[in-house]
Design a protein around this nucleic acid. Sequence first.
DNA 1: TTAGTATGGGCTGTATACAGTGTACAATTT
DNA 2: AAATTGTACACTGTATACAGCCCATACTAA
Lengths: 224, 224
Amino acid sequence: MYTGTFELAEESKPIRDIAYDRLKHAIITGELPAGARIVETTYAEQLHISRTPLREALRKLERDGLVEYVLRHGVVVRAFTVADIEEIFTIRNAMMMLILPSVVERVTARDIAELRMLLSEMDVAQKEEDADALASFNRAFHSKIEHLTDKKRILRVIDDQEEYILRFSAITIASIVRRSKAHQEHHQMVDLLERHDLEGLEKLMEHHLEESKQTCLAAVANRK
Amino acid sequence: MYTGTFELAEESKPIRDIAYDRLKHAIITGELPAGARIVETTYAEQLHISRTPLREALRKLERDGLVEYVLRHGVVVRAFTVADIEEIFTIRNAMMMLILPSVVERVTARDIAELRMLLSEMDVAQKEEDADALASFNRAFHSKIEHLTDKKRILRVIDDQEEYILRFSAITIASIVRRSKAHQEHHQMVDLLERHDLEGLEKLMEHHLEESKQTCLAAVANRK
DNA sequence: TTAGTATGGGCTGTATACAGTGTACAATTT
DNA sequence: AAATTGTACACTGTATACAGCCCATACTAA
């Protein structure tokens, strides 16, 4: 019986999806570190729900690859190796190159305006060194660009891969604040988009992702 | 943290995974066509299981993108458009190009022998025009080559995409029987692998996948 | 000690009960 | 007849009960 334990709106979604979001968030923020075992009864109690919707959430996380299922042992948060990061960025970069033509082709003046709006907010966050704000704006910025494509399936692959590295965003963004070059690159991207300069954008994006990967790799190395 | 030990042996799978496999198979073979609604009670009864494991299977299929969940309406088998096929093959091809270097590097004499064994079985199936046998051998052949890589995540993306087009394999394989050139190409692939000829393999694979895509597209068009 | 063996608790796997919502269709009204 | 309301039914959403496995711990025997 759903007694309104989740007062935080989202009435439309089933509890299992709320549980899914919560668990995913916990994994991404590191609240649930790699190797942590997710015991159904414990988390069901903690979220004030029954095991049924929680288990359905776990099955989704399992297919996402965020947790690993061990027969008759439940699920465990999966660990990440350097090789994983390498592959994730390889995939992401390749997919990005596949969608960029459609992005450049489809971008409108309105999109540019919206991106510039985001940029100005990022300027502030950058100046104030507000890492949290910058993290969310950064994600929104990249997401907005990617979603300009009409290649839904490729986009899905990108989003999927992005999910994995979100775990390190807290760390990597902190260094982006320092590396203001990355922020300059965001401005350049919008300029290139406005000029529909595919080739320039390809080069810049590749460079940008490469730098991002290096930061990510450093973050993973430091974690040990 | 989970530090215990557990049996690595492949024991009996949970019912939910059996249900998952069954449903996936039903979707792939077309037994459950696009648009078909999967009613929990009906299928639970049919598989002689309760709704709980069935629902967990559905959550997996949902994340796979094979079915679509509608709030308070259950799941429906998703449809495929021509654009979907285009994208799937675009992704598959790009990912294939990413793993081929590692495949060429890692392939052993033993692998070549095993592939040749598969080929000889395919020769028979080809001669006897046994489409079913050829379909499974064809899949095994490609799977074997792909799994020579050590890039597990990229491989996963390939496998995921492959899953989608398996639905059309029955149709496409039938035409492969006619197009014996595709079968010749399989022989060439092994030869190129044996010679560690990356460039040649890249070209051949790209061509092979392109032909496969065309057949698939034709199959989808005919379905209407 | 060391190995082998009970045994109890914790947790997963599955079934089932029940609540609540949407839908189809009949009944009623205009 | 068209629109509206009422109502039963079908199906999903969630909770809960219960069985069985697995591991830890304790206990026994050599």
